[in-house]
Design a protein around this nucleic acid. Structure first.
Lengths: 132, 132
DNA sequence: CGCGCATGTGAGAACCATTGTCAACTGCGA
DNA sequence: TCGCAGTTGACAATGGTTCTCACATGCGCG
């Protein structure tokens, strides 16, 4: 049975207030800052449980760190700025179909996929090359 | 200046003999097994240098572990069996174009992307449901 | 060919995100 | 309210990766 505890509610609440992706460590720090003490292990367990429930979406950074965010209702992918981490949600129905078809052609079932696009956003490019 | 050393040659050679993705740890173990002792740190440095040079492609597993493989001439993605780990290379020029276009539309430059498709291959499905 | 030194190496420690441990705690149904 | 199974949290352990630093060596130069 899954219980509703102060800690889980607090973790879920963080993602309600936040946009974009955040690490378990960050959530933990944020709770502490708000005076809401929740153990680090508990935060990890909570975000994993939330992700299992499909309430959070997770990706991994370049360094292998796990990031989570509130899952929106529709399936989509992410365009992430390498420099500032800004994230844009993008959709591509054609890509979804393509992935399913390719998998099917190779006899694979129960198909899922991950797709992330990385680049440098305009703001960061400007910041990096201020002189021209 | 970049030097050609026994160690770097050995690491590069491993990827010549191997197909698919392999971790730095695995490369290290393989070299040891061949009697070719190369330090773990050196293997890490070598694969990173190779990846920087564009000679190796890298992805991250679900657990955050970094995997590398010899970059083939053409860009492609992977269809991976969740159960047995079998990997099939797939190409989708349309996907490439879509990713570049989407990133461009949002003002992102220097674009790259990762796309992996997961599923259960026919063999594993048969093995899992022998009676049905 | 031999010198010199900047670059590379490697054993082990450090790092850091994540997971495991386990005794104490607490929702929640009865 | 009671009981207990799920939950918590401080801390240790894990494991991949990076750092440190003294030693080794490729390679340009003479």
């Amino acid at each position: 049975m899954v219980r509703t505890t102060r800690q889980r509610t607090a973790v879920a609440a963080v993602f309600d207030q936040l946009e974009g992706f955040h690490s378990a460590q960050e959530v933990h720090a944020r709770l502490r800052a708000e005076g809401d003490t929740v153990g680090l292990s508990t935060v990890y367990r909570a975000v994993q449980a939330l992700a299992d429930d499909g309430e959070l979406d997770s990706i991994r950074t370049d360094t292998g760190e796990a990031l989570y965010r509130r899952c929106s209702t529709r399936h989509h992918h992410h365009l992430v700025c390498r420099s500032c981490g800004r994230t844009v949600e993008v959709e591509g129905p054609a890509v979804e179909r393509w992935a399913d078809r390719v998998a099917d052609e190779h006899g694979f079932a129960d198909v899922s996929h991950t797709l992330e696009i990385f680049g440098t956003c305009a703001a960061c490019r400007d910041a990096a090359a201020p002189a021209g």
